[in-house]
Design a protein around this nucleic acid. Structure first.
Lengths: 324, 324
DNA sequence: CTGAAAGCGCTTACAG
DNA sequence: CTGAAAGCGCTTACAG
């Protein structure tokens, strides 16, 4: 393991000052082309790499964007991260991904992250917004919307998406509904629930709401505790729908013959399931990308913005098309 | 956005030197308890956070571990990352996740990462090993094994796992095999293929090998190009098996009634599929964790090591249990 | 086009 | 138990 080569070493070898080497490195000021070439050659020979830490300290910025998510192994979030990371990499920023585990850890995670001095943060957690009041760097919230103009937001139209789903179900003659909602301090879960409540108050249907937590297991549990079955079980996300379908199979009920099941998110696997899942697609990769675009914009121009994505109904084979 | 509070500010307010504040911060040397409390109070009041960049520069280490993977949206890798990240976070290290995209980008990704000066690197890509010769920091390779004692490795026993699968299949009377292999510069794919070749050379079965690339689509393609079907299609990974099952459905063939299909990896979704997938489980979360343990050990004690995990046959419903 | 010098925010021998 | 000083590896006004 050879000793680290520094800018000073390069300067000494080239017989110039560190200033000059730095100028070549950053193309910040013109340098005599002969000495420039000499310096470049020495850099290549020695395999010199600028020390990013030192540069960050000096410039007061790290070209790093922090991103906080609850769980990287959840396909929704890993796709969100990919969307952001692909874009940021292209713009020469790097991404510091922080897996908070759950909302109680969000504040701790944020502190941990802030110490690394990222230039900005993309936040896709569900913690209390007030922990962000004093961090002093740009933040974009993803998958949530609040009435605070100091922040930027990227959301998708959960209310409209769920409404589209319900309109489709009523049109295909589904008359009785069980709605499995997500945790009620999650923005997206609340919006989808709101759509369901508005739907039931304006349509003549039988309905029941069950509060849950977006998990696979919760879908199984709900099915196990159900004594009679509706025409359709509307799940607030795909993973719960997977659990519901799994649970119904264990009870020897056929989807969609006996009843329909719907999801929300359109995870990669939803079309591979049997039956393939009728759900609502969120453009999650593009949402991640949009968050990245907005955050770079905030760093440069210091202006906040809101971006709302459309959700799209995807009809597949887990819903009956005629109805009973 | 208030001005950044530095250690110097704290020192001035407390009427002590920066050395003393630093000692309180790091508990590196005893400090008079009265002044200590005073300093702690001021730190809390001001909301001071030490600048990680400055500390890194001074100490020559960043408490950051880089991890290079081909694709964060692939569940195998996101789980690997989670295993490593959970452990590292606990040990107060942070993880810099680099999504290389594909093997051609590995070298570029590595350069990008090295500039950030991580203390070590976990590499789960498939690029040429020689790009690591001169990086000068500890490296652990995950999911590959080479004959170079300068590095550490975490692998699982792919050869044994695939052999177990094949022994199960022959025992359940599968006589004809199509084997869909992964890309042949991937270590795991090669090991699984080797197991298959050894199996066919010692058993009296009909077999055919098709080279592919681990993708979902490739599974569909293989099925579409098959004119006659074997007793079982053995896939080198789960995702390809998903594609195969999907493709067979489109051709109105029932799994496992008409033929069996097997995978490798045991992704989270494999038990949710219909039929649920017979596959081989790799303890990927623990492999990520092991990589993290080894890398911290290398940083401290500078000794390399190799860790081999067992793979476990998981029999589910995509294989016929009697055979025809 | 170029160099000497200051400084980013820390930590740590050194001296007391 | 404490402080003054040096230095980690860079960049950038400033002066020429």
């Amino acid at each position: 393991m050879e000793k680290k080569v520094t800018l000073k070493d390069i300067a000494k070898k080239a017989g110039v000052s560190t200033s000059t080497v730095s100028r070549v490195l950053n193309s910040s000021l013109p340098v005599n082309s002969e000495t420039k070439n000499k310096i470049i050659k020495i850099i290549e020979e020695t395999g010199y790499h600028p020390d990013f830490t030192a540069r960050s300290l000096r410039l007061g910025k790290s070209n790093t964007i922090g991103i906080i998510i609850p769980d990287i192994s959840n396909p929704f979030f890993s796709m969100l991260v990919k969307g952001a990371d692909d874009y940021l990499k292209e713009k020469n920023f790097s991404t510091l991904i922080c897996n908070s585990g759950n909302e109680k850890n969000d504040e701790k995670t944020l502190k941990f992250l802030i110490e690394k001095k990222p230039d900005a943060v993309i936040y896709a957690g569900i913690g209390n917004i007030k922990i962000f009041k004093n961090v002093g760097i740009p933040i974009v919230f993803t998958d949530r919307l609040e009435k605070d103009e100091n922040f930027s937001y990227v959301v998708s139209n959960n209310y409209q998406g769920m409404t589209d789903m319900l309109e489709y179900l009523i049109k295909t003659k589904h008359k009785s509904y069980v709605f499995i909602s997500g945790n009620n301090n999650i923005f997206s879960a609340n919006e989808r629930l709101r759509a369901f409540k508005d739907f039931t108050s304006t349509h003549n249907v039988i309905s029941k709401i069950i509060h849950s937590d977006y998990s696979f297991d919760s879908g199984i549990d709900v099915v196990n505790n159900l004594s009679e079955f509706p025409d359709v079980i509307v799940c607030s996300n795909d993973l719960t729908a997977y659990g519901v379908i799994h649970g119904l199979k264990l009870r020897n009920l056929n989807v969609p013959k006996n009843l329909s099941v719907t999801g929300y998110d359109d995870l990669l696997f939803s079309e591979m399931l049997n039956p393939s899942l009728t759900t609502v697609n969120q453009p999650v990769y593009n949402m991640g990308k949009a968050a990245a675009e907005i955050i770079l914009n905030m760093i440069e121009k210091n202006n906040t913005s809101v971006r709302i994505f459309k959700n799209e109904l995807i009809v597949r084979n887990s819903t009956k098309n005629s109805g009973g």
